[in-house]
Nucleic acid binder design. Structure first.
Length: 461
RNA sequence: GAGGAUAUAGCUCAGUUGGUUAGAGCGUCGGUUUGUGGUUCCGAAGGUCGUGGGUUCGAGACCCAUUAUCCUCCCCA
């Protein structure tokens, strides 16, 4: 049998895991810095928790888990009826009661509702776990991938929005990802545009179309708008909308004039202005990225209601590497009304791909072991195990090659593992209670005692 | 859900208009008189050419089907 793994999934080899952990640790540290608390939820949720939350397309992409025990005689009849429903494209709890987590936001909302009496609001949590989507895999798209979410519920303040923007900037600055652009917009401005076009019902169609501006150009957007049912006389208005440029304040002023007749748009514009003002106070001027207003930004998920954000890098051809926004009534879906939330998500797998392509990972991630002692003299074993033990006690990762093997084989092994030092204790070293220490990077060798050895290794960290 | 491409050694790929025992590089293993890797030199192992049919005297190559992978669109992180 040929070994294989399911489509769109991946094995992560040791070096890859180290690099992924570097990303996760960086993001985690920032989340903690801003007061977010860790949360984990199950890999699977009840199907009913997930269905209908991500739009029609989303429902299709949910990985469903077939129920166990369908062969039990008392379940067989139900299973057959359930299967008929599934063949019609419907879901049936008789066949699938559970599904794999599709994102981290809905499980979070469920958690908040279930634990509402125990939580101190505003509640800030971060969550870093894999999610699954039955999407067609391609470049930068996987069926199993990780998200890192930070959300706060129970606060309407736009301070939250601006802090989350800071988290994006701080994290990507820390990871030295170049070309980062944090784009923001407001669903309320988009709603205002639809309203001014007299096409509030076509909000989604308008946003989906204009979101593609940088991809298909103005002509393409117009074509798409017409296809989606926008009448020709509205195109000019949308054109004006898309042509607004300048610095943030100038953009806001122009938009305010263009959408003067829409109350909701004015609210959205004011929210953008306030968010940027807070952000201005909180942001570190040294960060390597900027927050910019992009009125074409749409974001697919249909539960966003206020400020929305998306992160891209122009250094690599890649979709967005992060996104988020405000959702006024997320927990309402589960019966808890009046609780507003706002959150962001990091796309770890895409960030990894970007960093890998640009060679941004620090060198020293490759190995934790500082020294390997070669195994060439059985009589030295006791001494070496003693050395290894002492080094480990002082927090230095050390190994003893467990089998007696050819010298050059052991050297090759250390080299391949990227271990920076090799310790050699043969007959003569053993006699003098010393270690011959070889620096694998410079190739130099010196003879040291245990205390000197510990010092050299400690210094090399 | 729609469209396109690819499938040959562990990996990356050659293989001419169909013609004998299917090749290379890297990697692996062994040797280079055995206590020195990342840079020698020599050698070896490793493939029923994704799978199943068909055309042909003859198929890795051509045709059909099937499966898998990759890519684009849709949508998304």
């Amino acid at each position: 049998m040929k070994p294989s793994i399911p489509q769109g999934t991946r094995d992560f080899s040791p070096e890859v895991v180290r690099r992924r952990q570097y990303i996760l640790n960086t993001i985690r540290a920032i989340f903690e810095l801003y007061g977010y608390q860790p949360l984990e939820t199950p890999s699977m949720e009840n199907l009913t928790t997930l269905m209908g939350k991500y739009g029609e397309e989303g429902d299709r992409l949910i990985f469903k888990i077939i129920n166990n025990g369908l062969n039990d005689p008392k379940n067989q009849e139900k299973a057959k009826i359930g299967f008929e429903k599934v063949l019609e494209g419907k879901n049936s709890p008789d066949l699938t009661e559970r599904a794999l987590r599709y994102d981290l936001t809905i499980p979070f909302a469920r958690y908040v509702v279930m634990h509402q009496n125990d939580l101190a609001f505003p509640f800030r949590r971060y969550q870093m776990q894999p999610v699954w989507r039955a999407d067609r895999p391609q470049k930068g798209r996987y069926r199993e991938f990780w998200q890192c979410d930070a959300d706060v519920v129970g606060s309407d303040s736009l301070i939250n929005e601006s802090e989350l923007l800071c988290i994006y900037q701080g994290a990507f600055h820390k990871m030295s990802v170049p070309g980062i652009e944090v784009k923001i917009n407001s669903r309320k401005v988009l709603a205002g545009l639809a309203e001014c076009c007299g096409a509030s019902g076509l909000l989604t169609d308008i946003t989906v179309a204009i979101d593609k501006l940088d991809k298909i150009g103005m002509d393409g957007v117009q074509k798409e708008l017409l296809q989606r049912g926008i009448t020709e006389d509205k195109l000019n208005f949308i054109n004006n909308y898309l042509n607004i440029t300048g610095d943030a304040e100038s953009q806001l002023i122009q938009m305010s004039q263009l959408l003067a007749s829409s109350e909701i748009a004015q609210t959205g514009i004011q929210e953008l202005r306030t968010t940027l003002a807070y952000h201005n106070q909180l942001a570190d001027k040294n960060w390597n990225s900027n927050v910019v207003i992009d009125f074409t930004l749409a974001r697919g998920l249909n539960y966003y209601t206020g400020i929305i954000a998306e992160v891209t890098t122009n250094a690599v051809k890649m979709g967005s590497i992060g996104g988020g926004g405000r959702y006024d009534d997320l927990t309402g879906l589960f019966g808890l009304k009046g609780l507003s939330g706002v959150g962001i998500s990091f796309g770890v797998d895409r960030i990894y791909d970007v960093m890998e392509e640009l060679n941004l990972f620090p060198e020293q991630l490759s190995s934790s072991t500082k020294i390997i002692f070669v195994n060439i003299e059985p009589a030295a074993e006791t001494a070496i195990l003693g050395y290894v033990n002492e080094l480990r006690k002082s927090g230095i990762a050390a190994e003893y090659y467990p089998d007696k093997a050819k010298f050059d084989k052991q050297m090759k092994y250390a080299d391949k593992r990227n271990v920076p030092f090799v310790g050699i204790v043969g007959e003569s070293e053993m006699k003098d209670n010393v270690i011959k220490l070889k620096n694998m990077i410079s190739g130099e060798q010196e003879t040291v005692n245990l205390m000197q050895l510990a010092n050299v290794l400690a210094d090399s960290i």
